[in-house]
Design a protein around this nucleic acid. Structure first.
Lengths: 339, 339
DNA sequence: CCGCGGCATGCAAGCGCTTACATGCGGCCA
DNA sequence: TGGCCGCATGTAAGCGCTTGCATGCCGCGG
């Protein structure tokens, strides 16, 4: 493995000092036209690429931000991140992505790794994590923004939406359609405040209507079609059978629709189903799933802007709350008449 | 922003030299038990995290590999990468992910960035790229593996499958079911060898049956439900109407199914649809899409293993070809009888 | 004709870490 | 008891880059 060309090699070839080469790269207008051209030629000829580590070490800047998400396999994060990254790239900032697999310890380790790599900003999903993790970030003095979540008095800047309120509103929709036996298939709530808030939202709506979301009608399922299907089969076997399955996300809802079909039930004739997130999947299953539209891309974009602003020194940690809206879909219909 | 603790700070607090601290971190068994404990305490007390750049600079190793994918929004890449990353993490190697948005120039830029960051291995999607990009990589002397593609005499190690053969086989399936007017909705082939190979595979199958996949019956669509739907609507308006729409991926196929429903056509009674990739989506639409199962996760895993092996000095660039298999689905049925 | 200001460039000191080599100590064998 | 070996630790030289300051040059005004 031949050694890579260094600044010194370029300098030597171009007959200038390393300082000049460095300036050509970082502040071209501080170098005389002709010298600059000579250096640029040398760079091209050698195929020189600056060594990132050395540069970071010397300048103490990295133009890099890090994001830790649970998993790339969840489309909502993929979309949001893609937008985030595109926007950061526009400002010539690199995004480092790490995944935690919904494990708080792993998330902390990933945050440490990112900090060690000198990220100048951090994007984290949700608000729930141990205090010392926040201390760590605060101590480093780098900006962090919490996304996919929003709470009025969150001490950190957030870019997200009110999971609880959105969940409440879709549950209210089900109530308005006459449903009374409403069950919920939630995402796994352990270590996942978004999933928990969605449960709380649904519970609030039910309680306001004098109903309860008790243990029997609330199950958690991991993020997969199969898990949604299994959970739904379990719930649909209950007697009396629930007339509506409110799901914590669209994947679970799609699984539930499949389960209903499998159980010989009509959706929404026998049982209604609702989702959350409004991913493509929701529009493709039949009947289309009524869901909550969440502007994932816009949130990613907005998070990027906020981070760049913070990075540029603006000290207004202005959170941004996005509105969600209910997307109608054939899967959610009037409650069947009592028999 | 207070300065981060450095090795020297830790050394000072623990009353040892920086060399010893470094050894505690990198080769703990070369340090006496008691000294080691003292150092570890100091590390914990200061919340010290090694500076990655400095470490890379001094040791000339990064334990980092990079991957450049077109976009995270495509589920197949997300799944594969997730698996890749998990496996690399097991070996304590960090994965850097960059996206090219299907733009060759951007891909090259990303590769350069990754090289500058000192990646010790590279994962690239597909084989098609300019020679000088390969030269660049070769010159750096780092291992690279091409994934999602496979070709017998590819000069680089591949971990993938034969897109062309797989596409041929699903087209043959359609032929076997009696279809003769077969159209294809392909992914965008420009700069995408996988998409192109799938087209070629279908064409081969058709030509072997004495049919042609002419311009009229071949359209390209970008990777989205809407594009698939639009393309399908266009094709279904042709007279005579195609009896089968072979699609370059499942997303397009799902769009096509939706289009058929919209056009009042029965799937597969009036028109059959096939997909490619076997993402979750394919099983959720109704009728379920007949598709080609591609083991994305296993490919990611395998790519990781190959890269680690190469990294460990094994110089057997042994490619790995995965088999695909056709997944039956209600969307692909016998050709309707001629009327 | 001298001096001064401004510009282009060079010099050299680090940035935080790893590591080859030096040092010093204790123990073992002869 | 002396010599030698090996272990634990320290010393210090970089790794490739940025950047404050020094240097030298040119042109202009006094």
């Amino acid at each position: 493995m031949k050694p890579l060309p260094t600044l010194a090699d370029v300098a030597c070839l171009a007959q200038v000092s390393t300082a000049t080469v460095s300036r050509v790269l970082n502040a071209p207008d501080r170098v005389r036209e002709e010298t600059r051209r000579r250096v640029q030629e040398a760079v091209a000829q050698l195929g020189y690429t600056p060594n990132f580590g050395a540069r970071a070490l010397a300048s103490n800047r990295t133009r890099t931000v890090g994001a830790v998400i649970p998993t790339m396999e969840n489309a909502i994060f993929a979309r949001g991140l893609q937008a985030l990254q595109e926007e950061l790239a526009r400002a010539d900032v690199t995004l480092l992505v790490a995944t935690s697999n919904y494990d708080p310890a792993r998330e902390e380790a990933q945050i440490r790794t990112l900090l060690g790599r000198g990220v100048e900003g951090l994007v984290l999903i949700g608000e729930e994590r141990e205090a010392h993790v926040y201390d760590l970030i605060r101590q480093r003095g780098i900006p962090a923004v919490l996304v996919w979540t929003w709470r009025a008095d969150c001490p950190w800047p957030c870019v997200g939406f009110d999971n609880r309120a959105s969940a409440r509103s879709i549950a209210e929709r089900a109530l308005a359609l006459g449903h009374r036996r409403i069950a919920m298939i939630a995402g796994v709530t352990a270590g996942n405040d978004r999933a928990r808030q969605r449960v709380e939202g649904v519970r609030e709506a039910l309680e306001a209507a004098g109903l309860r979301l008790d243990g029997d009608l609330l199950v958690e399922a991991e993020y997969s079609l199969a898990a949604g299907r299994d959970a739904a089969l379990g719930l649909l076997a209950r007697r009396p059978r629930p007339t509506a399955l409110v799901c914590g996300n669209d994947v679970l809802a799609a699984g539930a629709v499949a389960a209903a079909r499998e159980a010989g039930l009509d959706v929404p004739g026998d049982v209604s189903v609702s989702g959350f997130d409004d991913i493509d999947l929701a529009k493709v299953v039949y009947p289309p799933i009524a869901t909550v539209h969440v502007p994932h891309r816009r949130m990613g974009l907005s998070a990027a802007r906020l981070l760049l602003a913070l990075d540029a020194g603006e000290r207004r940690p202005e959170s941004r709350r996005f509105d969600t809206e209910i997307v109608e879909g054939g899967s959610l219909g009037p409650a069947p008449a009592e028999r």
